[in-house]
Write a protein that binds this DNA or RNA. Structure first.
Lengths: 218, 218
DNA sequence: CGCGTCATTGATGTGCATCAAGTGGTGTGG
DNA sequence: CCACACCACTTGATGCACATCAATGACGCG
């Protein structure tokens, strides 16, 4: 999201996001129970976040790519309530939340920016609830791919050539379906001429059919 | 959540929440597409929020009771993205968001408070995603009732005597299940001696069994 | 280049949706 | 004040979408 600042403000925001941290593939940026100190802005790489229950059940709650913010879950209780795992080597900006609050008291546009980021996450999760609560498996996978494509496009990548960074299992967890069902649904969509699927390489052949598939009647 | 203020701060926050609005049962407090101006704090009554798609599909995204805040979805795009409907006659405080931001630039504890409210909503939605994505119908209903009971208890009501303000259909929409399944699951839990169910009057007889039911293995 | 992880594919089972019918409670108008 | 209509809910019968079980195939990377 855009955030226009005056030169002197820019400088102060820059120093806020000065510290960097590298996270190698498979490593956790934070995990449930960790003390919350900072938000993280992804510079490069790809993450998943997931919650887990005592009985070892896991639910992937989101996939995040460059330019997105993770860690918002930690604010409410000063502890993180989910895990963030790098799905490929990544680098993040560490943004101490105290400093964010301090600065956003002075820089109105930053304050608004933070609020929008949090609101956007709420709206995003509303969308996932809609997906999980009322769509069948085909619609879910279509919505998932469409969303990925849009985000890649916004970053200047091709919206039709996707390289999935997550396993079928992680997709399944996110979409509330079993790994075999994910696989079969990919197959069906490729038989139907909507996708070309080759492992983690997915090409969207018919974007119109894909969008229609998201809103098919039950 | 607690919010301790000095006397002069208190006064200013008080005037922020000065304006009231009554919403009769069935009426919408706001709906998708409405311009976003204010957050709403529920003084009395009970609400549901739901999203809808073009193809008329609806998903209840939450039920809110006295003391809770609604409208956070509107911040990101300056428009509401869901509907808020009163399930019983209600009164809310109208809190202009501009004023909230203004004040929270001056009152640090208010600023933190707002951030926590938004983060809490994010965490709550994570929980719903877990529920929708990985629990069976019994577990979902158990989790739903347990959550309601906790919130009522926090407000000084009995945690075992519930009067549901929503229909079976609304419960079903929230939990991603059909109305008949909601009904049958209530029945089963009452046969199992966990609940006593009489229409919208529900008594939790065996809270231990209820909590165990939330974490049964798949 | 071999081994383990990830993905595919087929066969079978089942939890929940769907279809269908009926009950009870509540408000309304004759 | 009763009869009717309407709505929310329940209950039973049936079907299907997706889970589960099982086996094999194909990478990717160390």
């Amino acid at each position: 999201m855009p955030l226009d600042l005056k030169a002197n403000e820019m400088k102060r925001v820059d120093e806020l996001i000065g510290k960097r941290r590298k996270v190698v593939r498979g490593e956790r940026l934070f995990q449930s129970g960790d003390k919350f100190n900072s938000l993280f802005a992804i510079r490069t790489g790809f993450f998943k976040t997931h919650t887990s229950t005592e009985d070892a059940r896991e639910q992937v709650t989101g996939f995040q790519m460059a330019g997105e913010i993770i860690g918002l879950d930690g604010i409410v209780s000063d502890r993180h309530t989910c895990d963030a795992v790098a799905l490929e080597d990544a680098e993040v900006c560490v943004m101490p939340f105290d400093r964010i609050e301090e600065l956003s008291r002075e820089i109105t546009s930053l304050q608004r920016h933070i609020h929008k980021i949090m609101s956007r996450e709420i709206v995003r999760e509303n969308g996932v609830m809609l997906l999980l609560g009322s769509m069948n498996t085909e619609e879910r996978l279509a919505a998932f791919l469409f969303n990925l494509a849009k985000r890649l496009q916004a970053r200047g990548f091709s919206p039709s050539e996707l390289v999935l960074r997550m396993t079928r299992e992680e997709i399944g967890s996110y979409l509330g379906m079993q790994i075999e069902t994910v696989s079969r649904t990919f197959k069906k969509m490729s038989v139907d001429g909507i996708l070309e699927v080759n492992g983690r390489h997915v090409r969207i052949v018919n974007i119109d059919a894909l969008t229609k598939m998201m809103e098919q009647k039950k």
